[in-house]
Design a protein around this nucleic acid. Structure first.
Lengths: 351, 351
DNA sequence: GTGAAAGCGCTAACAG
DNA sequence: CTGTTAGCGCTTTCAC
């Protein structure tokens, strides 16, 4: 009667296992395992024999089986709300880089901005027993986040959340808005209007930042905001609205680059020159802003840093070095291009 | 002496298992398994009891364990060469949508265009025992692809490969280039130049398509190509080169949108109007092309379709319905915007 | 250094 | 319908 360890019937079909390697190298199963995990205490001769057997068999360790026994996967789940937005490319890049250093592999997933799909994506990652979860600008309800927290450490990126269980890393939208407004003010602008981002991520904080900065600069009386949203058309319509004002604003701070581009178009159509007549500042410093035809001054968020910090938060939790929430805020910078310039002298009347 | 099934010491710490659910619902382990898998032949009463126990325990099936015994993961690995390029957002979207229909989950990974990292990313997916692999525009060597084929079905997206073991789905660059050239010709252009994409993906085929179309239209004598690459600066330099020609070309077909944008800038600097003096066509129809300030006529590839087809190829292989390579080519279309217009009459001299 | 044994959480096969 | 049994491929422990 064959023993279990001797039974291996249709090895032909299936992939080689650690046992096949052991037999080929004429050593024990445990020894192979030790070599794979890089433990020491294995003779050079045996190590080489194992290495060679692995090579010949085209053996690949089954991390599924390993995870099952170790009860950890060394995998991180990352749910990205929008893979089409190049900003998240930076975030992913930051996560991956740091994860590689720390010996984790990263599994991405997306729900394409649809809350239900995002929830399914998160659930899917959790069923895979990832050791931690990074949610990049998720659109799901806070309760979903809390549910996830009960299973593994969670960090939320670029999203205001009232969920208290998770860590978070966000861009400092308040500071970013200040940068934009102060830049305009330093160029002599006093009538600085704001195109509001509506429900877009961070838009409310950016508006607050605008208001606070205007106040601080003694320009509270000139505050002017108009609803635009995060879309090009939103920015276009908002700018047309602004053009009805008198006196005309001489600078516009748009909630993001895309809406700034819409605004630029509206200005051009109205026969106004940028920055001669009106300066425009965007937010995000996407690749769009850098295009020569657009050359938009914009606030830059550091996606890679946000990703890296998120990865570090998760790691601390997994390692058990911390169990209280950590909330990081990353400072943005201003990238000045040619869409902003000195305020026109005596233009468009005075107030 | 307790039996194994009765032993469950520190259930406190670890996550609930199927056994915990069974005990709570006062049914057998197998019954729970049947409910989870949606088998029928379970009484409504029991089904409900199980459902409730799952709810109360916040139980989540461990797909790791399931995969181990089923020897299939129902996971697909997707290696994306460049997550920053919005085009791949479309591809991913197509893959995900179809995968969801077919009951697969998708794991993304990237190597950030670095061959070594991409190889590691692929290996990582393979160790996870994904059931199939989709490689989107991979930069790795063909031998890596062949190695992967030995483990699971592989489909390569948007990349010329001589690897014969895998399926492939590509954009029809030949047809796309024809569309661009024919569009210009139909507007009366005869001196149509091409900014070459160099080593960029598909660039060689686009050039061939350009040459073939010029030939077909009887414009072989007017063929003019200049090396530009896929970058904005490459397009800019290439266009400056073209501007030294006499007679000047009246239309430029650039290898991609980004280089077309560089070319537009060069034309503008030279005081030439688009499309009044020179028409420009791009390739990819990225979001850049649609910007009002750019409004670039461009060849559109359907990323989502490419992803969806890739998913279907993999699925056929996994299901064992096919074992011979399948090579799909997706037809592009032309999106006409304001960067192209009628050829100037008698402009820039005749040949 | 080696080899045996137990078991991670689950499914599958089968006898009741 | 239920309960038992036997693994999936690996790590871990422990006696040799």
């Amino acid at each position: 009667m064959p023993r279990r360890t001797d039974v291996k019937p249709h090895q032909s079909q299936s992939e080689p296992t650690i046992l096949d390697v052991a037999r080929k190298a004429r050593v024990s199963k445990s020894l192979v395992s030790m070599v794979i995990r890089g433990e020491d205490g294995v003779s050079a001769k045996n190590r080489e024999a194992v290495r060679q057997a692995i090579e010949e068999l085209n053996y690949r360790p089954n991390v599924i089986a390993r995870s099952l026994v170790q009860r950890r996967t060394r995998m991180l789940g990352v749910m990205i709300s929008d893979l089409r937005n190049p900003f998240f490319g930076d975030v992913v890049s930051g996560i991956q880089m740091r994860a590689a250093d720390l010996g984790y592999r990263v599994l991405f997933n997306t729900g394409d901005r649809v809350p239900n799909l995002e929830e399914a994506a998160i659930e899917s990652l959790l069923e895979l027993r990832v050791d931690g979860l990074i949610l990049a600008a998720p659109r799901v309800d806070d309760t979903i986040i809390e549910r996830a927290c009960r299973a593994v450490p969670v960090v939320v990126l670029n999203r205001d959340t009232s969920a208290t269980c998770s860590d978070s890393v966000t861009n400092d939208n308040l500071a970013g808005a200040s940068l934009a407004v102060e830049h305009c003010a330093s160029l002599g602008h006093t009538r600085i209007a704001h195109i509001d981002g509506g429900t877009g991520a961070g838009a409310n904080v950016r508006r607050e930042g605008y208001l606070a900065a205007m106040q601080r600069l003694g320009l509270a009386a000139n505050v002017l905001t108009v609803e635009g949203g995060f879309t090009e058309n939103g920015g276009y319509q908002a700018a047309r609205e602004l053009l009805k004002q008198f006196p005309l604003p001489t600078a516009i701070f748009a909630a993001n680059d895309v809406s700034a581009i819409g605004a630029l178009k509206a200005l051009e159509e109205a026969g106004l020159r940028t920055p001669g007549d009106v300066s425009v500042v965007g937010y995000d410093n996407t690749s769009l802003a850098a295009l020569p035809q657009i050359s938009l001054t914009s606030v830059q968020q550091f996606g890679a840093d946000i990703g890296r910090l998120g990865m570090e938060c998760i790691f601390e939790r997994i390692e058990g070095r911390r169990s209280t929430p950590r909330h990081e805020v990353v400072a943005p910078t201003l990238v000045v291009r040619t869409s902003t310039g000195p305020a026109p002298v005596g233009a468009h009347g005075h107030r």
